Computed example of a mutant assay.
Amino acid sequence: MILRDLFRDGTCKFQDFDAQKRGFSPNTVSARLKSLVDRGFVQTVLYQDHPPRYHYSLTKAGHALGPVMTAMYDWAGGTSDYTPPSQRSLT
């Protein structure tokens, strides 16, 4: 869910992930975001000091997951509106 939203939207705030509508607790989303940041797939940018609030976006390593995410969507019978950079037209 987090990676899909970041591929689709580019940059998200915590509330953009809309966890409760999807049946996840905010603590679960927070733990998943921390794990993705710790592993180098997602980066944070502080946009408010008090209380601290962040924008989340994909790193270069996160973007490299694009073909994997597309394959997972295809395998599940869905469609993906993500096109890896290497397959995008330059026009």
Rank of each mutant, 00 (worst) to 15 (best):
M1Y: 05
M1T: 03
I2V: 12
I2W: 11
L3D: 04
L3P: 00
L3N: 03
D5M: 03
L6R: 04
F7E: 00
F7K: 01
R8P: 01
D9E: 07
D9Y: 15
G10T: 04
G10P: 02
G10C: 06
T11I: 14
T11A: 03
T11L: 06
C12I: 02
K13N: 12
K13M: 11
K13P: 01
Q15T: 11
Q15S: 10
D16K: 07
D16P: 02
D18A: 06
Q20G: 00
Q20D: 04
K21E: 13
K21P: 00
K21W: 11
R22A: 00
R22I: 02
R22E: 03
G23I: 13
F24M: 03
F24N: 01
S25Q: 11
N27R: 07
V29L: 06
S30W: 00
S30E: 04
S30L: 05
A31P: 03
A31W: 02
A31C: 08
A31D: 05
R32K: 02
L33W: 00
L33T: 03
L33H: 02
K34A: 12
K34I: 10
K34Y: 07
V37W: 01
D38I: 12
R39L: 05
F41W: 09
F41S: 02
F41K: 05
T44K: 12
T44M: 08
V45A: 06
L46P: 09
L46S: 08
Q48W: 09
D49F: 10
D49K: 13
H50D: 14
H50W: 11
P51N: 10
Y54W: 11
Y54C: 03
Y54L: 00
H55R: 08
H55W: 10
Y56E: 04
S57M: 07
L58I: 09
L58F: 07
T59R: 10
K60W: 07
K60Y: 14
K60Q: 12
K60G: 02
A61E: 14
A61F: 13
G62E: 01
H63M: 10
H63P: 03
H63N: 06
H63G: 05
L65T: 08
L65W: 02
G66L: 06
P67F: 06
P67D: 08
M69N: 02
M69T: 06
A71F: 08
A71E: 13
M72R: 08
M72I: 14
Y73F: 13
Y73D: 08
W75L: 15
A76K: 13
G77S: 15
G78L: 13
G78H: 09
G78S: 03
T79Y: 10
S80F: 00
S80T: 08
S80Q: 11
S80L: 12
D81I: 05
Y82G: 04
Y82L: 03
T83H: 10
P84L: 08
P84K: 12
P85C: 05
P85T: 12
S86F: 13
S86E: 15
Q87I: 01
Q87K: 11
Q87R: 14
Q87S: 06
Q87H: 14
R88I: 10
R88L: 15
L90G: 14
T91I: 15
T91F: 07
T91G: 15
